[in-house]
Amino acid sequence: MVDLGVTLCGLQLKNPVIPASGTYGFGYGHAAFYSPEILGSIALKGTTEQPRFGNQTPRVAECPAGMLNSVGLQNPGVDAVINEELPRLKSVFSGKVIANVCGFSVEEYVRVARRFDEAEQVGIIELNLSCPNVECGGMSMGATPSGVARVTGQVKKTVKKPVIVKLTPNTLDITALALAAQDAGADGVAMINTVLGMRIDIKKQRPVLANARGGLSGRAIFPIAVRAVYDVYEKVNIPIVGMGGISCTEDAVEMMLAGATAVQVGAENLRDPFACKKIIDGLPPLLASLGVQSITSLIGAAHS
């Protein structure tokens, strides 16, 4: 029997597979396909203080081996998430979830994080300092080490629950962002968010997305994510939640070998609603074939 359990920032997960924020709504939608109870945890849709409609459509564009999105943090606001979405999720998922917190100012991040800190179902607060699809907030605050340090430090001063910081690859040196998060007290980092990109419609001679630029996710970015996690693992001693283009069990294992304690699966959930289930189901036989007894032995094992 292979042990799939991992501990992430003090939270016991039955396996390291977590659907990524923005690809799984508030967790109950996918219940039509399989029971979310099989998941390690669930990263909720990014939440701001007020409801947000997000950007104009088209918000998605297809790419070779991936997709662009410029959803722009559509969400019903933190009150509705706590009062309506979390109770609905509770009926299909009894574990602790990861609340993805977004804001347009340091103060907003702090206020939203504080609300989730009081929510019983929330086990970890994930600071989204990496959304590429909003003018201010998101990546604009998280692309520099000083921005990461400022938001992380203020949130850590306010909340009791573990805080992980979701980092952007659209920066000079992602290891500097990770170190800034660690130095500001972060309990972990989650990486990578989407890679900034664009498609142009050659018939209309205009960008496909209404917002022109969007975040690239999917298989195309997997090697970028593995490299980023590998490099950050060498620099920090807090756990890393690895993500970016994971689409099969082998990818999840590879990401853990690079240094991830847990993995998030994003775009693959959208093209195959059973993606997380298939990845989890594939772990015992794959680990057995690799001669691995406990999945934790994979974490960072690619480093010499």
């Binding site: 459509t57 998605v60 959803v71």
Partner: peptide, 27 residues
């Protein structure tokens, strides 16, 4: 009609404004 990501309400790619608030055209 709208460009869709998932088709089942997970990605919020096909949202439109309605008199009843934001709706996912796919769901």
């Amino acid at each position: 009609e709208e460009r869709m990501g998932c088709g089942f309400g997970a990605c919020m790619g096909c949202t439109c404004k309605t008199a009843d608030g934001a709706k996912q055209l796919c769901k």
